[in-house]
């Protein structure tokens, strides 16, 4: 059995899970949600947002698809994947979300993070979500790479479309002979997503499921590693500050009063849905946002360049993995 591997990297929301899911023969092992063993304290294991899928390439060859965790706080997993699981991968596919404010910065960032890895493998840039925002254009990307002196195919895809993702895969494995792409594409196009079964015995799945200690990091430290976040404050269910990036942060009081307002509204109108977010914006001004969950809230002060959607995505990501415990 010949096996090939491809590694997908890219910012949160760039479409890693979607791309892998779109073509995988098996249901994607999205380790974000599927760890059900209660003895594993979910938020403490490194089954952290990696993806794994598999595509049969014929009778005796198979392609393993891996997605790295997007969040920068799980960067240590990148190293682990690169040096272990995906060390023998044929290609690295960098997904770039075209709706981000500075997609070229993302390229720069991932290039520098994965430089050694890329140097020895096929490297492909796939631009996603261009249906939502059509600039930068393909020519812009080409110029960007030219300036950096990088040779890599740039492929615009919709990560939700199987044939688009197949284009990537064909490009990634273009040196390989004896793969019947026509047949595989046909099969991918014909397989409905729901017909795919999880393959719990695969060794790759085991690798992902293995429990590892996550370097303990508070939600505030994690928040401050995200580009665009200038200040962060964590509040408990009583709207009391438990942690903050800066005690003299001007908006700390505002975070608290917004969280209190949300609680007051919920008290007054319990029939309504839960308040999940209150934000303040103005052109060219840093944004102030509070994201609320039943037992905690996160206040964020962010760059004016970050869009509301980007802020929310980061906040949800942070809150999901928050241990919500005191630093030890």
């Amino acid at each position: 059995m010949k096996s090939y591997k491809v590694l997908f990297v890219g910012s949160p929301g760039s479409g890693k899970t979607t791309a892998i899911r779109t073509i995988s023969d098996i249901d994607v092992v999205d380790t974000d949600a599927k760890v059900s063993d209660s003895t594993i304290k979910r938020k403490r294991t490194t089954t952290v947002g990696m993806d794994y899928g598999k595509l049969s390439l014929g009778e005796d060859s198979v392609l393993h698809l891996y997605g790295t965790p997007g969040q920068e706080r799980f960067k240590f997993m990148w190293d682990l994947m690169v040096s272990d699981l995906a060390n023998d991968a044929s290609a690295l596919i960098l997904l770039i979300d075209n709706t981000r404010n500075y997609p070229f910065r993302d390229i720069e960032y991932y290039l520098s993070e994965f430089w050694d890895y890329i140097a020895k493998r096929h490297f492909i840039i796939a631009v996603t979500r261009s249906d939502l925002k059509n600039d930068p254009t393909e020519a812009d990307y080409q110029n960007c790479l030219k300036e950096k002196g990088i040779l890599a195919p740039i492929i615009f895809i919709d990560a939700r479309k199987p044939m688009d993702v197949m284009d990537l895969i064909m490009s990634a494995l273009s040196q390989e002979e004896n793969i019947n792409w026509a047949e595989i594409s046909h099969r991918v196009a014909m397989t409905e997503l729901k017909k795919r079964n999880l393959d719990p015995d695969s060794p790759q799945f085991e690798w992902l499921r293995k429990t590892r200690d996550v370097p303990k990091i508070s939600i505030i430290e994690a928040a401050m590693q995200v580009r665009g976040i200038i200040g962060a404050t964590h509040l408990n269910e009583k709207q009391v500050q438990t942690d903050t990036s800066r005690h003299d942060l001007e908006c700390n009081e505002l975070f608290r009063s917004l969280a209190k307002l949300a609680a007051a509204i919920e008290n007054k109108a319990p029939q309504l849905d839960q308040i999940r977010n209150i934000s303040l914006h103005a052109p060219y001004k840093e944004s102030i946002s509070v994201f609320l969950e039943p037992d905690q809230a996160l206040g964020l002060l962010t760059n004016s360049s970050m869009t509301h959607t980007q802020i929310r995505r980061q906040a949800e990501d942070l809150l999901q993995w928050s241990d919500n415990v005191e630093n030890t």
Partner: peptide
């Protein structure tokens, strides 16, 4: 509340997400 920490150059946009 927002105006309290900002005397000039005020915020002109607020969001409230309910469910």
């Amino acid at each position: 509340q927002a105006d309290k920490i900002q005397a000039n150059d005020l915020y002109d946009e607020a969001h409230l997400q309910l469910g």
